[in-house]
Design a binder for these strands. Structure first.
Length: 803
RNA sequence: GCCGCUGUGACGGAACUGGCAUACGUAUACGACUCAAAAUCGUACGGGAAACCAUGUGGGUUCGAAUCCCACCAGCGGCACCA
């Protein structure tokens, strides 16, 4: 027997796979299809770390298993390559982002190939490839055509360091997700995508898909549907009414003041009427500097200024109430104005306490001297005229009806979800294919002008003015209007990184198509994606954005499924061996190259799957890696104890059937760790038995193959099985043979195990009782006591209750 | 503050539908082999002298609870005054 040398056999088999193409997916095959998808990586300068292979190996196992089961499997890989880190690196090192991307992609690809994933590399996509982003631009133009892309001046998150507008979702703890720089709010003209138009369907259609519950829940909470009421407050002396949004119209009698967002339009419109305008404007200026996060930090003291000279009428009490501005009311949610009910809203309560505003109890049940009473399940309306005596839910309805009748309110469904800020003032992104003409407005490029190529520039650094680097390129910016032929200017903003990743799974289906993003037949054949695995951190951004785009393409008749992913699962992070997140600065990053070099790809794969619960984060352990290498060494040495035989060994047969069942099920349910444990147990059984038949070994090799494809393929050849393992069939098990006839049954007295009996599974209660009473270790617990009850479950347990 | 997830040996974890807690692996100790070491193989391995006690804590339901219910505590993640 030769030594097990992964460094020799792994490259050998990778070459065979490259030549024989067993992992190629075929469009329009007669076989049943299976589309397995993992999130394509951002090719960063750091290269792959051991966290990447975890989900890739998991779905590689599924993909390989499906092929052995006779499926036509699409398991692709590509590169999500636009984005700021590459651009920042390019600026710092004076290398063009295109070159940086090429280098990073080459490195990632080499790393991935060394691990032996069964990707169909002939379908590789790259979001920065003009042939790819042509279709990203094309989808954008479709959105524009349908009125789902619009430009609007609105306050956005502005990173002072990157000089770039960020989606709310991209702001992390008040800092820029990409660079960590300070985020302030700035009014800018931005391209927006109307994802909110799809909010309802994005929630409702979750019922149709098989996502982990926590993923569905997180999306639902993110979209945040609430049913409420828009109520108009009249302001004597001005024409406009002040409109607020509330989910608690029942508390209207307790509304003792109003609060507006500092950006509210009423301030500028009626500045002549505001007696303390200077004070109001000074406060506004102060607040505008701050990010949403700082403004809404709960722990901080409430601040605000009363707008003197304007007062509103509470439509329920008809009394005049003061109007304030404060940073705790956001212009981006609801109407940018609230009615404050300090008795029953915590933030309003704190504000009222601070500024000595009246607090009225309108729902009995708490003590509003101490805190706002916010419970909606119990309590009775008081001090509320026609609502008195009602419960909250009834009161909401009655008040809503009343307001609607008198024309001062209407029911309204609101969402936390906001439209998607789609503009970036950066270089390394897809150019937005629109032209601005003074005469015609925003005009889309014709389809045959796509892709609008990202121009080559010498200087792609950001501008101090906040304009895109493209704005400095006069030759590129100045163009003619596609509509009227007159002078026009190109849009210089680029798209966010999320654009390319919102539809990449469609391009894999038909990656070289020049006439469409993918052919209709191919899309119809492959969709939906049968299984998509990715990180929890993408649940609210990428996952939601891509569902939105897919639904739009569905409405356009381009795809036949309203949802892109039939199933979505998530993996946990791999932490450093010090139990902290892997990062360069912490110095705990493990590079898979080292593991492949020192232990082999199969060991890396086995360990990543055996490391723990797939859904939980888990620290890396080099000792665990060693253990998996030892396991593969034991597998390798099994060739020494093989004897001829086309049947399973009698002594092992039951265990083999059980293992086939266990592994087949575990590989489908994210329980890779216990699946591998079962294979380890079977190897131990093999060794304890001293010899195994060829048939025993053959089945074992197929079961292990998805996890450790190289060693199993090699052993297949060494032992002399026919052809290649990748052409084999996944083994079947016989349910009857997975069941034991004789078991060790625990015998309990008062619920505590007092003994164990070897019995037939089918033995009756009488037989077991007789045996148990004869057993001294059990009967001594029964002495001098009366049996008052017996619990018997055949083949499982016998419990005697005594007194 | 809200929402979600998670708490089991020294460590990663296992435990079907409420039915033998700690499978599998790691670490450790001892033994075999060896001149020796590595590798390999074998044995032990939750605590306790024992009765017993142990699945974050305290209650509850049950013949029986890691699993179900209630209330807490801790850690991780997400969100950010969302009216």
């Amino acid at each position: 027997m030769k030594d097990y040398k992964p460094s020799e056999i792994e490259p050998k088999w990778q070459e065979v796979w490259e030549g024989k193409e067993p992992f190629k997916a075929y469009n329009g095959s007669d076989k049943p299809k299976f589309y397995a998808l993992v999130e394509f990586p951002y090719p960063s300068g750091e290269g792959l770390h051991v966290g990447h292979p975890r989900p890739y190996t998991a779905l590689d196992i599924v993909a390989r298993k499906r092929r052995l089961e006779g499926y036509n499997v699409l398991f692709p890989m590509g590169w999500d390559a636009f984005g700021l880190p590459t651009e920042n690196y390019a600026i710092k090192h004076k290398i063009h982002p295109k070159i940086v991307t090429e280098n990073n992609v080459a490195r990632f690809k080499k790393q991935l190939q060394s691990i032996g994933f069964s990707f169909d590399w002939s379908r590789e996509v790259n979001t920065t490839d003009p042939a790819y982003y042509k279709w990203t631009q094309w989808i954008f133009l479709k959105l524009f055509e349908k009125g789902l892309a619009y430009k609007q001046e609105m306050p956005i998150n502005w990173c002072t360091s990157c000089k770039v507008g960020l989606a709310n979702e991209e702001v992390v703890n008040g800092s820029c997700e990409r660079c960590g720089g300070e985020v302030i709010r700035k009014v800018k003209n931005q391209w927006m995508l109307k994802i909110t138009k799809y909010a309802e369907r994005l929630i409702n259609d979750l019922d149709e898909v098989d996502y982990l519950d926590r993923i569905k829940l997180q999306q639902k909470n993110w979209i945040g549907r609430s049913h409420g009421m828009e109520i108009d407050f009249t302001v004597p002396g001005i024409e406009d009414k002040l409109r607020v949004y509330t989910t608690r119209p029942d508390t209207l009698f307790g509304a003792t003041y109003m609060v507006l967002a500092v950006e509210h339009s009423i301030i500028d419109k009626y500045k002549d009427k505001i007696e303390n305008l200077d004070e109001v404007l000074a406060y506004r200026e102060e607040v505008m500097k701050k990010s949403d996060f700082e403004r809404t930090e709960l722990s901080k003291e409430k601040t605000g200024v009363e707008i003197k000279g304007l007062r509103a009428i509470n439509p329920a009490t008809k009394e005049e109430i003061p109007i304030w501005i404060s940073d705790y009311v956001l212009i981006t949610y609801g109407t940018g104005a609230i009615m404050a009910v300090p008795g029953h809203d915590t933030r309003d309560w704190e504000f009222a306490k601070k500024f000595n505003l009246p607090i009225i109890e309108v729902i009995r049940g708490g003590n509003i001297e101490e805190a706002a009473y916010t419970d909606t399940d119990s309590g009775e309306l008081v001090n509320s005229g026609f609502l008195n005596g009602l419960e909250v839910k009834e009161a909401i309805n009655k008040m809503s009806d009343y307001l609607q009748e008198i024309g001062l309110g209407e029911r309204k469904v609101n969402y936390k979800l906001r439209d998607w800020v789609f503009s970036r003032q950066r270089y390394w992104g897809e150019p937005i294919p629109l032209v601005y003409c003074d005469k015609c407005g925003w005009v889309p490029l014709a389809e045959d002008e796509l892709p609008l190529m990202l121009p080559e520039v010498d200087n792609y650094e950001t501008t101090d003015t906040g304009e895109s680097p493209l704005a400095k390129m006069d030759d590129w910016v100045n163009t003619t209007c596609p509509k009227c032929g007159g002078e026009a200017k190109r849009e210089t903003d680029t798209m966010p990184q999320w654009a390319g990743s919102s539809w990449y799974f469609l391009r894999y289906i038909d990656p070289d198509n020049n006439n469409a993003l993918a052919s209709k037949e191919a899309l119809d054949y492959w969709l939906p994606i049968d299984w998509y695995n990715g990180g929890m951190e993408h649940t609210t951004l990428h996952l939601l954005y891509s569902r939105f785009w897919h639904k739009f393409l569905y409405d356009e008749g381009i795809v036949k499924t309203s949802e892109p992913y039939a199933k979505r699962t998530s993996h946990g992070m791999i932490l450093g061996d010090n139990n902290e997140k892997m990062s360069k600065s912490r110095g705990n990053v493990v590079n898979p190259d080292d593991i492949v070099r020192d232990y082999g790809a199969d060991t890396l794969r086995t360990y990543e799957m055996f490391i723990g619960d797939f859904e939980k984060s888990v620290p890396w352990s080099e000792n665990g890696v060693k253990g998996c290498r030892r396991f593969l060494e034991r597998v390798w040495r099994l060739q020494e104890i093989i004897v001829d035989g086309n049947e399973y060994s009698k002594e092992l047969e039951s265990n083999i059937h059980k293992t086939i069942k266990k592994v087949s099920e575990d590989f489908e349910t994210l329980k890779y760790n216990t699946g591998i444990a079962a294979l380890m147990t079977l190897v131990n059984d093999f060794n304890n038995n001293g010899k195994i038949t060829k048939k025993d070994f053959e089945t074992f090799l197929i079961l292990l193959n998805p996890v450790a494809p190289h060693i199993t393929e090699e052993l297949w050849q060494v032992v002399g099985f026919e052809g290649y393992l990748f052409n084999a069939q996944w083994p079947q098990y016989d349910e009857e043979r997975t069941k034991d006839e004789v078991i060790e049954m625990p015998i309990q007295v008062n619920g505590k195990v007092r003994g164990k009996l070897i019995v037939n599974v089918t033995d009756s209660q009488d037989i077991i009782r007789e045996k148990a009473l004869k057993d001294a270790s059990i009967s001594k617990f029964l002495e001098g006591k009366n049996i008052v009850k017996e619990i018997f479950i055949m083949g499982k347990i016998y419990n005697i209750v005594v007194k």
